[in-house]
Amino acid sequence: MRILAYIGAAVLAQLAAFGRLSIFTAQAVSHLARPPFYWREFVTAVVQIGWFSLPVVGLTAFFTGGALALQIYAGGARFSAEAVVPQIVAIGMVRELGPVLVGLMIAARVTSSIAAEIATMKVTEQIDALVTLSTHPMKYLTLPRVLAATLVMPVLVGIGDIIGIFGGFVVGVERLGFNSSAYLKNTVDFLQVHDITSSLVKGAVFGFVAALMGCYYGMGSDRGAMGVGRATKGSVVAAAVLILAANFALTEAFFST
């Protein structure tokens, strides 16, 4: 009986957590339609999330694209299919690796930062101070960050896709001996609009998830340094898992036959 009680309590706790997250999400989104909108905070979030993430996104995509080219070449050689490197690098980066890796890097860099910042604000009574200054924390802290991440992530993913393909191109031409113009022509000819659309949509969804998790865990932080640490860790884990789950669902939606 005790085991059943534990299972029941765990299920109820999970359902309660899901309910809290759903209410938080609905509240965050509902503030889009209710003025005021804090433009200055939005622009700051765009710069913080978009501009300052470019180096890590670029490096991640470049090395992944290069490694992908080497793997496809080595694997393709087993059945004399080395020539497909440009096409597979392109499709691999645009459909999967670009959005997922950029999403995970944003979860590591942005989600953790948002959660730690908001949790510290909560612990040091800055959130209470916002309320006493007639400023809704959801409007001032959550909405600008979530909207900024949702809008800039497709741009980051697009840039990541291009740099990833460029990484494959550099390795293909310099290391594997591909003709540069043939490599580019094969890449461009093979990619379809549908591939690019799926990549950008994934980016928007992953951006929304990453920023929302940072805000949710930050706002729900417990007191003290341990509370901030727990909120930060929880936000990154939740964002990473949800991004991977959402990636599966979106891949199924876009490419299931």
């Binding site: 604000m121 009574e125 101070a129 006493t132 007639s134």
Partner: peptide
Amino acid sequence: DRDAFLARFGMLFQGGALFD
């Protein structure tokens, strides 16, 4: 109206609660 209510108050928090 909550905003109008809060506009009547000023508060000094224990730790300052200044926005970093």
